[in-house]
Write a protein that binds this DNA or RNA. Structure first.
Length: 578
DNA sequence: CAAGGTTGCGCG
DNA sequence: AAAGCGCGCAACCTTG
């Protein structure tokens, strides 16, 4: 059992910085001794020694620039404090009473630094065009100490320091997980992927050519249109061709096409499906993103305003379900795939302290519980209503069903309705742990101001109202999506520590790579889903760690409450169905 | 012809 | 043109 987040003052902090010459300066805040200077070569070994003897919490500028070289050197760290990510949270958090000092430190408002490329020559590139490279946060030890002092002061005076501290710890742990995921890579069966592509599209075509199956289906579409030269890949041209053939659509999107009956519809939808697979996840994708049996996408922790991760390269967050069968364990290893059933409504029930909604979620299917509560008649209706409540639906089936939830789950509905009201008035809302929403921009404010002027037209008023509602839907969803992201970070953070405690045993180690890969380790994360790669003999232990971490995550955030977070968990060689 | 915007679809 | 949130990416198309 991992200990809960200790009080700030009891953590052993060790601040790291880089010198201009590439050496590392380390300052242990606990022992009062001066700083130590380490050469690039000494650095990983020095970190490893300290990790072995009561790991401190490393305070560093940016996990994405510090951790990859350590992982390459075979050194794993237990915990860190990521100054860049913490800065982003604190300078905007409503819980921070005086954000001015943080906001004044504008040098800390920068994107992640790409890890140093050991093989290429990034230095030359930078010298050629320094403005070209993305701005990075400061990496020196003095800048780190100054920023860390600002952050500690902000936390010490914050409204709910324990929550914010948990958030910063979870966010930082997420940054470690992202670096480890990138180092480990997703075990990917390129041959299976290729087989799937051939089966669906035909043999790999020459560069610039379309696969045979796309050509065939395209011909069927043109025949049905009665236009042998119709362009299928340009939406405006396709739209004109469809209308000429008598299909009265306003766009060429799938959902709208599906509503019409015409011989062209079926082959066209088929063509679009093939085109998507070919362009987004075809052979070119394999060439670019899969090497030596590993798919290595790029994650961006904290990349979404709500606190969700984003991705930048490789499209990890859009991997089609269709391709999951190519996600395959190494020989002697297996995959543990787990996702949380209805994470967001469960998080909402917990935040709102809504006993009725908690009761609805007491089984494994919250939507079935909503039906049982009598609010709606079917599971489909329950799903539409619950999603509509969190997204702010006002029309259609969803808008019609939401009011029924208001009667059955008043506390939960009050919470999201209130978040929406605040947003409509241009205010700020916060997640459970204190990540706050951005304020609406100047354009939004002007729109609102113009609508309240005596000279305002009804058009001005309508536009302002629409913009206000739109922002309200954003803040409504922000509190739920953002708190769900916090739960997921806590799950990840807890899980990686538990996995590291599992005795690896006599396993067939991957031939090379970071040491943590010889133990059960995370290989994939997608909002509410994780995949762990584990030696077959350790699959049960790893699965138990996944379950236990989910329970701990709920307790860390919400304490002892009657809301649980049940997992759908499978152990199998391939991640896809079957 | 490079940059930026739009469309459509993949994921949660 | 998703009724209703948050994203990334490829291709097409316009703009300068």
């Amino acid at each position: 059992m991992t200990a809960a987040e200790p009080p700030f003052a009891q953590v052993r902090w060790c601040v790291l910085g880089r010198t201009a010459g590439g050496a590392v300066e380390a300052l242990d805040l606990a022992d009062g001794a001066g700083s130590v200077t380490l050469s690039k070569e000494e650095f990983p070994g020095w970190i490893a020694e300290r990790e072995a003897g009561g790991a401190p919490r490393w305070v560093w500028s940016d996990t994405a620039s510090w951790l990859p070289p350590l992982l390459t050197a075979g050194v794993r760290v237990e915990r860190c404090h990521d100054l860049r990510l913490s800065h982003a949270i604190l300078q905007r958090s409503e819980l921070v009473r005086d954000p001015a000092p943080l906001r004044a430190a504008v040098e800390w408002e920068a994107g992640a630094t790409a890890p140093a490329e050991p093989t290429s020559a990034p230095m030359l590139f930078e010298l050629e065009d320094p403005a070209e490279s993305t701005r990075s946060v400061p990496h020196g030890v003095d800048a780190a100490l100054a920023e860390f002092a600002r952050q500690r002061a902000a936390l010490a005076a914050a409204h709910a320091p324990a929550r914010l501290q948990l958030l910063l710890a979870a966010e930082s742990a997420g940054a470690i997980v992202a670096a480890e995921l990138e180092a480990a890579g997703v075990p990917w069966d390129a041959a299976e992927h290729d087989r799937l592509l051939r089966e669906t599209l035909g043999p790999r075509p020459a560069t610039g050519e379309k696969p045979a199956r796309m050509v065939e289906v395209g011909a069927e579409v043109r025949a049905a249109l009665g236009d042998p030269r119709a362009s299928l890949d340009s939406p405006p041209k396709l739209l004109r061709a469809l209308r000429a053939a008598g299909v009265d659509v306003g766009s060429t999107s799938r959902w709208e096409l599906a509503e019409h009956e015409h011989p062209v519809i079926a082959p066209l939808l088929h063509y679009k499906k093939l085109a998507r697979l070919f362009t987004a996840n075809g052979w070119a994708w394999i060439d670019e993103w899969v090497r030596d049996g590993r798919y290595r996408p790029v994650y961006v922790p904290g990349g979404v305003v709500t606190g969700r991760w984003a991705s930048s390269g490789g499209g990890a967050l859009q991997l089609p379900r269709q391709l999951r069968t190519a996600l395959r364990a190494d020989p002697g290893w297996t995959l543990i795939t787990a996702d949380v059933a209805q994470l967001e409504p469960r998080v909402l029930a917990a935040m709102a302290g809504d006993r009725a909604m908690a009761a609805a979620g007491s089984g494994t299917d919250l939507y079935a519980g909503v039906v049982a509560s009598g609010a709606v008649a079917t599971r489909d209706e329950a799903k539409i209503a619950v999603l509509g409540a969190m997204y702010g639906s006002t029309t259609g089936d969803s808008g019609r069903l939401v009011p029924r939830l208001r009667r059955s789950f008043p506390a939960a509905m009050r919470l999201v309705d209130h978040a929406a009201e605040v947003g409509e008035q241009g205010g700020v809302v916060s997640t459970w742990l204190g990540r706050s929403s951005p304020e609406p921009g100047p354009e939004w404010r002007e729109l609102q101001a113009r609508a309240s002027l005596p000279s305002a037209t009804s058009r001005d008023e309508e536009r302002a109202r629409r913009a206000a509602r739109e922002y309200g839907r954003f803040t409504r969803n922000f509190v739920v999506q953002g708190t769900a992201a916090e739960w997921a970070l806590a799950w990840l953070a807890e899980l990686r520590l538990r996995l590291a405690e599992i005795d690896p045993g006599p396993v067939a180690a991957p031939a090379s790579g970071p040491v943590f890969e010889r133990r059960p380790h995370l290989v994939f994360f997608l909002h509410d889903e994780i995949i762990v790669h584990a030696p077959v003999e350790r699959a049960e232990a790893a699965a138990e760690a996944v379950r236990a971490a989910a329970i701990t995550a709920g307790r860390r955030l919400f304490g002892e409450i009657p809301v649980d977070f049940p997992l759908d968990l499978r152990i199998s060689e391939r991640s896809g169905k079957g």
